[in-house]
Structures are given as C-alpha cells and as structure tokens.
Write a protein that binds this DNA or RNA. Sequence first.
DNA 1: TCATTAAGTCCAATGAGTGGACTAAACTTC
DNA 2: GAAGTTTAGTCCACTCATTGGACTTAATGA
Lengths: 404, 404
Amino acid sequence: MITREAPTHLGTMRDRNLALVLGEIARHQPVTRARLAELTGLTKTTVAAQVGVLTRLQLVEGAGPVREGGRGRPGAPLSLASGPVAGLGLEVNGHYLAACVLDMNGVVRGRAHIARNSRDRPVGETLDALVRMARRVIEEAAEAGFTVMGTTVAVPGVVDRAAGTVNAPNIGWQAVTVEALLADSLPPQPIGVRVENEANLGALGELWYGAGRGSGSYVYVSGEAGIGAGLVVDGELFRGAHGAAGEIGHVVVDPSGPSCACGGRGCVEQVAGLDAVLRAAAIESVDAGGAGHLPDATAELLRRLETGDALAAAAVEAAGSGMAVALIAAVNLLDPDTVVLGGLHALLAPWMAPHIESALSRSGGRLRGSVPTIRAAALASESAVRGGAGTVVARVLADPMVVS
Amino acid sequence: MITREAPTHLGTMRDRNLALVLGEIARHQPVTRARLAELTGLTKTTVAAQVGVLTRLQLVEGAGPVREGGRGRPGAPLSLASGPVAGLGLEVNGHYLAACVLDMNGVVRGRAHIARNSRDRPVGETLDALVRMARRVIEEAAEAGFTVMGTTVAVPGVVDRAAGTVNAPNIGWQAVTVEALLADSLPPQPIGVRVENEANLGALGELWYGAGRGSGSYVYVSGEAGIGAGLVVDGELFRGAHGAAGEIGHVVVDPSGPSCACGGRGCVEQVAGLDAVLRAAAIESVDAGGAGHLPDATAELLRRLETGDALAAAAVEAAGSGMAVALIAAVNLLDPDTVVLGGLHALLAPWMAPHIESALSRSGGRLRGSVPTIRAAALASESAVRGGAGTVVARVLADPMVVS
DNA sequence: TCATTAAGTCCAATGAGTGGACTAAACTTC
DNA sequence: GAAGTTTAGTCCACTCATTGGACTTAATGA
C-alpha cells in the first residue's frame, strides 16, 4: 500500500539533515549555528559539522558579525553564499527563446531573450539556436564567477518522462528527445538537463519569485495559442499520473460550443484562447512571417483595450466568462487559495480578472470558506525561465551533495 | 522552498526501514528474509533484526516451510500475522450507519449496518447511535481475538482539519467536533480516531480492496444527494489546500442550466444528482419518514431501468452526459488512469457508464494517449468503511511502532 | 576586574546498518 | 550414502552520524 522504495542508511540520514540545515539557512539567513540548532532540532555539534560541509561546498558563508545586543558571546551569522552555484532556465516558445541564470538566493545573474518564430522552423534549427543562446549565457555567467550546475528547459507541450520525449504541437514538435539532445550539446553539469512543461515551470517561477509567494497552493493559467495550467499544491508541483495534469485548455465550458481539434466541443481554448479573443475583437491574426516581441495582433488588442474599444472589451469579457467556468472546475476539484493568470492572460488581466473574480465568487461563494484571489503573473514572460532556474536551485537545496 | 521539518536521527532511520521491511512483507508474502534483503536493499543482518522486532509486535509470523524446489537451504517464509492488530472504519450517512473491522491483510473481521435516517435527527443522537454500534463491533472483534488499533469515521461533508470540525449540510451537521467526541466515547486506541470525507475514504477503499486495485491514480465519484469525488494520485489521497479538493458536485456543466444552492448555475449536482435523475424519470422522491436500506425512490428507479422504461433510460443518459462534462474537466486537470463510479452512480453504472465512456473518449481521444477506463465501485455501500479501516491498516504499515 | 551569559568546539558514548565469516539445511553427484 | 554444492540465516567486529556533556571563547554587566 504505502511504499517507500529506498532503504535508509547512515549516509541518507546525513544527507537529509544537511538539506534540513541548508533549508533553514535559506529561510532565516543570516542565522547563527545556535539558532539553527533550535530551528532544526539537531544538536549544536551536528549543526556545526553540517555547516562545515556546506561551507566547503561553497553553499554557505559567514556574513560578518551582526550585533544583536544580547548578553553572551555573539554568534557568527551564516548566509547562503552569493557564491558560484547557479541554475539555468531556458524556454522555447512560439515566438521567443529565453534564458535566465539564478544564484542560490534567486537573484538573476544573467538573462537572454531572442524574438524568434519557432512554429514554422525545423526542430533542429530551433534547438541549435537554443543551445547557442544557452552557451553564451553560461559563458557570461562564468565570467561573472557563476557556475551553472543544471539546466531546466520549458516547452509548450506535454513531457513524457518515461519515454524522454516532448510533444508540442503548437511548435510542431513530435517525440523530440530534448533532454538527450541538449545534454549532449551543453557543457557537462552535475545536475544535468531536464525538460518540463512551460505552465508547470511558470507556476513554480511565480510561486518562488513572483505573484504566488506566500500562497501554499494555487493554479497558474498560462495562455498563448493554447491554454495550459500549472498546479502547485503545498509548495509542490502536481503532475498527475502521466505528467499531463493541468491541461485546462480542453475543459468543456460550453457543451454546445464550437468543436475543437481535440475532438470535443466548447473547450476553453475555443473561447478564451488568443485566436478566439482576436476573432471576437475583429482583429486580423496576421503573423507577418517575421518575429515580433509581442506578436502584432496581441499588441493591437491591448491598444484597443486601452482606448476603450467596445468590441475588444466584449471579447475579453466573453473570454473571462469562459475562463471562469474552467476555473470553477479547477477550484472545486483542487481547492487552491490563489489563481495566477500568466502569459497572454497576464496582459489581459486588468480587463479580464474582474469578470473571472465575480463569476468565481458568485459560484463558490456560499460553499467554500474563502474564494481564491485572482492575480496577474508578476514576472511576465520570465515566469517559466525563472521557474526553470529555480528548479535547479531547489534541487541543490534539497540535496546539497549534488554540487560535487 | 522545499521543506523538511523534522530532523532524522538513528531512531528515525530504524523506523523507516522497519516500515520498508513490513511493506515488502505485505506485498510479497509469503517471503523469506533473504528475498526481503534483495527487495529492500538492506543486508540480511538488518532484515533479520527488523523481522525480530515485527514478530515481537505480532505483525509478522512464520508461515510454515513452503518448498520451492530450489537448491540450497530452504528459507523460512514470513507473512503478515492474521494476528490481533485490526482497524475500524465507521460511516455516517443520510440513510445508514455502518462499521467494518479489517485485519492487517484487509480481511473483514467484523461489520455492522444500521438503516437510519440521520438527516432529521439531532447530532448527539446520531453520534450516540454510532458509538453504540462501534462499541459493539469492537467488542465482537475482541472476542474473536482482534484488537482495534484505531478508528476512521467517514462523513458526508467537509472536514476542517485545522479546526477539528466537520460541516455536513446534508445531514444537518455544522462545526461538529466528531474526532474529539468519539475519542472520548470509545475505548482508548493507540492510533486514535480520525474523521475523513466519505468520498475520500471510498476512493481509498476501492483503491485498496475494490475496483481501483492496480490503478495508480484515479477519480472516485460518489453520488447520493450531493456528488463528491475522492482523488487518488500515485496511491495517495489528494486533499487540496484546505481538504476540500474533489468537490466535483459544483463543477459547472451547463452555464445556462438551472441555478444551484451554491450560487452558480448548471452544476453537475443539478444534472446528475439523485433528485435530478428522479425528477427527469418522473419518480416521486418520497422518503417515507422511516428508514429503508435503499431509499424507496432509488429502488423504483432501478426497477424501471431494468424493465427498459424509456423515460428512466433518458434520465440516466442525460445524467451521464452531464457527469461526462465534469469528468472531462477532472481528467484534463488531474490526469488519472481510471474513473470509479461509487454510491448511487455505482448502481446506475450499467446504464450510465457507456454514455460517459463515449463522451470521454470523444473529447480527450485525440490528445492524451489513453482514455481513462470507467468502472463501477466493487464494494457498493462498503467502500467508505473499508477505506476507513484500511487507513488504520495503512498507518500501521507506514509506522509499525505505533502498535505500542 | 570579575562574574555571568551565550556561542561554538571537543570528545567519549550510543546505536543502526554493514560485511564477512560461520553454521544450518537442503539438493546433486559420484 | 557420503562428499560436494548451494542457499538461508546468524554471529560479531566494525563504521560512522548523532548525541550530550564538558570545555573554550567572547561578549555584557556589576
């Protein structure tokens, strides 16, 4: 029934406690050994030993005596090193490539953003461009004294962990072995390369560094061409049985609505996706072949909303209502405390969020104690890369010994 | 970010490995020490020591030499003891009270079922009746040589773990401190008394002993007056941020449908709940004051379905379509591999499941690799009590030292 | 200046798991 | 049927992370 696969031995115990100490340092820095002993429940002796190891790993460093005015001998405060350990996040997307290097404190130590339409280009070319960008960023980080320990790549599709492949129909990828290809092309890293769904990483990015901080569990909705969601529960990503959880795009919001490529009718994507909104706002969805930072049509939509265009406003309201129905389902099933709108919907949030909020509170109001709050993503188009880099940081925090 | 609260010391390590060994015995019984060493990754020495402890706790016993025809010295097979350790599951419900005692092997060692309409009776009376039943069952189990180590109570409502209270509007309960009240009224038990949502326990019951065996993650839908769901992911219950996950009843399946007590419109409950189906089938929902095992109206509905009544069939088909829309949402968001229909819907499954299945495969077919299979619950009205008792068993398996 | 308080280090002790040697109990082969 | 082979289970000296108390260090307060 309940399974624990691996046996615990002395080394396991040590690693766990090491992670425990490092985690408390991260949360309470600067902090003395004595206080760490209280926080962790370990003895001073053990804490001192662990701190020794962490210092040698260059994960922790002394932070200069901070006087606290106490009586006895003052403690020696410890902090996470602003040291060499860093993580890299990458993102491939319909209209840009992006990268971001984060140190252990979550400070951005390098970034890149390349507008690029990857929808109509061969997979190989796209990956080459991604690798070139990654190499450049890694090199720049190295010059600034940062060593990238691992890389996480955000892709707009479903990751099949078992097969090691990615399917991302929106950019024409089918069974692409991203992890293997990148691992071969990038400099070797102790933590290696991992691929993850863009919405999932966006959710983590906002959780750790953006609009999701403080909320234990929430739904991050990320809309571009398709609509996906990342589900964070109790600070952990919820992936589902096959890693395909959070595919909110094909939740049915109108059984008598238009039919969808998925085979069903009235999916959210058909109602609140970019194409649907543009169509309803009567904006031509031309993507002029080349690359634009914000696709032209999206920019035009925002312009019209700002100038109070009635048709655009109605289009966004309709999308909001559709989205609300899908979110009601998500809220009832998953019981989150916050909903974060990302991607396209972060841009539309000023006009869209009120409609969603009122629909949500109307529907769930009488049953559940608290209606989840709706927020726009705080990191804009960087949510996913930050989440990706943060995943590497989190990995180090959870298992400090991976840093060689 | 990632948190581990408790420090690991030698004792923790030992307890973990103890659980590991016990778990492998449960999964592979009968099994020898040598094979256990392989399975767990521990040494023969350690396994032998752990088995010694488990034997002393009366959780494990030798099972007589089973010849395997191998070459060397034959091993001494070990099995879970059919010994004294047992768990108790209780259920309170609109129309019955139920109890079930399970030994460590999941064998039913005692049960009770009392038809009783608890909707219109004071909370205190209902709890008294529950306690009387529980006491009787515990006593009978004791006479048969079984010691109840803990109790789990299934209630048709939301459990607020923080406040220790239960809200179950369907039976008129509001902020009832069930755990505290029962713990005071029942004989002391090492594992104590726990309350849990009925759908959640039903999900676990089916997972461990019924239709869910073998599937790692699934959605258990339990419908009576309201409709709730229990979500099992990777063999674990998914509770959500406030323990209110799986409230599928108020997922919107028809934005233009009838308005619901929750404040929204077109909730599944309005379309696929008992009342809706009876209304559509033109059956009077009289509940003749007294108590009936199957409420009269439900029995009548089944009779008509069996005789091929067209109106009843249409009613169930409509309910199935509504349910399908809600399940599409659940499947897309949670990515389960199986859907189990419980409660009322287990009875209706023969007529309802085909409609749900076809709608599900139509909708998700082209996107996700596999469409989840639909099954009817195998334990009928016992799902929840078995899950409740199983929770106690699982607790012992996960932490054998709780058995004093 | 001396007592007090608290931080950090040192060190012998504890105890769970390890690994190799040993014994036990079967089967195979001559 | 006796000797050799194979596998199961036990014994025992050893390792090593954590512990708890004694000790050292460094500040404050009288």
